[in-house]
Design a protein around this nucleic acid. Structure first.
Lengths: 158, 158
DNA sequence: GCGAGATAGTCTCACTTGCAACTATCTAAA
DNA sequence: TTTAGATAGTTGCAAGTGAGACTATCTCGC
């Protein structure tokens, strides 16, 4: 008779761990700045990339639905953490970039988030962390998840 | 200036991977049996453990909110995949167990789910899979996630 | 230049889920 | 025995999210 131990089943474990880690991290930017996960993703994408980029680009590379990104962008615009400029070449899209205030928030948040990441990975040795990142990368690759920052043109349709 | 590359940031990667893998797997039981994730978790827990157990127990060990489990149990009862019997020792709780129909569904589903798991892990060598499972386990342990089936009495409050 | 189809972004709708209140029941202590 | 507090399970409500329709704009082929 077939059996499946949920606690040894990798898909379940990844889902549970992803939710857990995400909850731990998001409490950081939610409590300090009232940001939710989509809003944080927008800020993180714009903060890391120097150039302004479109909402569509952010949706694609964070794998978040465009309507979710749209709502996050609206909220951030209202809080003046973001500004958008019309793109003269294509008037359907807007170029988004962090305001000075948004950049300050981003830079203020990074150290504590990196610290939390290190806490989560603190149970692993340096070598194990490298191995874990490498194995994660292999799985991401095989599932076609975007793994590194790439120019917009290389990101295939979502 | 502080920088954080979202694509190298483990919490983001785990969350994205967890969502992706979960979506890939859930399409299997959704399309074949119209089950959603909470319903599948109830069935998986009861199918693996021989003894009947309470909704509370399922909620705790799958780390799913008790109201979500309650709704899943109601739906499964209506479909006659589950039955519940009053617990004479404690009339607040019910003992849940799969019906014959539920057991058949469970056993029918297992092979394809295990196959999908293997597809996802197919990019790793046998040794890498072992390593990955071990590292996952270390992180789960350090975060206090339940990792193996344990008697109900040992599971601390959610 | 014009029309068909594609794309960026917004908005409405339906669905899911977590929270918290609620009922019923249990436990322990006065 | 009574009462206060804990616990199992259910339910109403509010918030968040994806699907898909919609508008405006772009592109390509004629």
């Amino acid at each position: 008779m077939a059996k499946l131990d949920l606690f040894k089943f990798v898909p379940f474990r990844l889902n549970r761990l992803g939710a857990e880690v995400s909850a731990a991290l998001s409490s950081e930017y939610r409590e300090r700045y009232g940001l939710d996960i989509p809003e944080w993703r927008v800020i993180a994408t714009l903060g890391f990339r120097k150039e302004a980029c479109s909402a569509q680009y952010i949706a694609q590379c964070t794998r978040t639905h465009k309507s979710t990104i749209s709502r996050a962008v609206t909220a951030l615009l209202e809080r003046h953490l973001l500004e958008r400029v019309e793109n003269e070449d294509d008037r359907r899209e807007f170029r988004l970039r962090l305001t000075r205030k948004g950049t300050m928030l981003y830079e203020d948040l990074i150290p504590s988030l990196l610290r939390r990441e290190q806490e989560i990975l603190g149970c692993l040795s340096a070598q194990e962390r490298k191995d874990f990142a490498r194995l994660l990368g292999k799985i991401e690759d095989s599932l076609g998840l975007v793994q590194t920052s790439r120019p917009m043109s290389e990101i295939e349709a979502y």
